[in-house]
Design a protein around this nucleic acid. Structure first.
Lengths: 246, 246
DNA sequence: CACCCTCAACTGGTATGATAAGTTGACCAC
DNA sequence: GTGGTCAACTTATCATACCAGTTGAGGGTG
């Protein structure tokens, strides 16, 4: 997760680029709900791409429920707040200029706090086998104080919990949320460091999993993520305070 | 929601049909992760549609993270459990033959239980204005015992809570989940009737919103949805027990 | 005037066929 | 074995049709 030695070279296709541009305009409010989209032929001309590429992009906008399409009439922009699914979250976190939306950050942390306890509780069905694997993940965290390691292992810890919990809704939501905050993975490292260093609650979760104690797992799960939530809340307050002073 | 007098005639486009077929095969495990997809030209020939329709469908599969595409090589199926977002939930609830997956049902109910209390708690910021609107939604429920009315108004009640809570993550997740269980809206009516008739907790939430009492809202939110969860759990146990006897 | 019909000029939906660009695996030279 | 070559794949993009549904302006009709 942190500091990959190499990363895949990005080769964005034309339709990807068109999709990104249009989705950005919609999510930033530049194209408000109800507004008709330019015609496909017009878009393909102004963007200098083939109509097929535009159509592929619009199909994706349709799937994300950002626009409604019907033959004969222009496609129209929908209200993503009312129609969109959780998969939009990553695109909402950082707006076009790369600034992150603090309201979205708070939202994510609130959702994380709501889900984490139940994710931990659901994982107790994994029993001793899961507990062993969780302890194995904790080992390098105890040995090595490197924040990067702590952060990566903590994510792996929760990933395993949600993977073994057998709750597909939790898992899919976890995927969407993970994709959201890995965008700001580096920035989170320092802000959430108190949580990453909280090995006690993670260890307590592993122990609770081992003895099948769902309530203890839930309790320690809540305690653990609330550490990060509090820290982030403080950081955001400070950030917004500074902005107001400017 | 319930019993619309008329509903829009379905006009599925070719690419929609192709997408649905492929997504179904993947979600049902017929095309396991790692398996290469047939070539676009081959698919377009076997399905009897032009290649553009196939490409639009595959772009959507790519967006849903059901497949990975790269120029020059075949597209390959991904593990949706590890990659997919919450927007897949509706497609997972009912498998190809229209049978519903009880594990998915349980997952959804667990997620609902995890989110509902915090949704109620977040809504208290709406204050008296929101409380008035909530009471207005409860009025027809108290007047009219019709289960259909109760069900629709209860959904509207939660919709308003999540809409006013100002938490975009909650809202998008709520959208995904709503789309999931409106698929079995009629079947849920009887199973969850005890919850729909529980106006006491809904009224208590409205009252808590009015006086800004987040903890009370959270508590009554939890109590309310646990009624439905328990009822559904019983129904599923009975159903699965019957299946085992067959 | 109000109503309704017609129709041209839009819109998206589908089809065909060509070319560019990247991947794969067999083959060969060293 | 290592590395290069190349033919036969694949997806990516393009151009150009034509089909099908929507819309709004115009003109009739009562």
């Amino acid at each position: 997760m942190s500091k990959p030695a190499f990363s895949a070279v990005s080769k964005e296709s034309l339709s990807d680029s068109v999709y990104r541009q249009l989705a950005d305009k919609i999510l930033r409010g530049e194209l408000p709900a109800g507004e008709p989209l330019p015609a496909e032929r017009e878009l393909s001309e102004t963007l200098g791409v083939n109509r097929g590429a535009v159509r592929e992009a619009i199909k994706r906008l349709q799937q994300a429920r950002l626009v409604a399409v019907r033959q004969g009439g222009n496609s129209v922009v929908l209200d993503y707040r009312a129609e969109g699914g959780l998969e939009l979250l990553p695109s909402l976190l950082v707006n076009g200029q790369g600034q992150l939306d603090t309201a979205v950050v708070r939202s994510i942390m609130a959702m994380r706090s709501a889900l984490a306890p139940d994710i931990a509780a659901a994982a107790v069905k994994g029993g001793a086998a899961l507990a062993d694997e969780l302890d194995a993940l904790l080992a390098p965290m105890r040995r090595d104080g490197d924040l990067r390691v702590l952060q990566d292992q903590a994510l792996a810890f929760w990933h395993k919990l949600v993977e073994r919990g057998g709750n597909i809704a939790f898992r899919l939501a976890f995927n969407s949320m993970t994709r959201t905050y890995t965008q700001v993975w580096d920035a989170l490292r320092l802000v959430l460091q108190a949580e990453f260093r909280d090995l006690d609650n993670l260890g307590a979760i592993a122990a609770a999993v081992r003895r099948g104690d769902a309530e203890a797992a839930r309790r320690h799960g809540r305690l653990h993520v609330e550490i990060g939530r509090g820290a982030l809340e403080q950081a955001l307050d400070a950030m917004e305070g500074r902005q107001r002073l400017q």
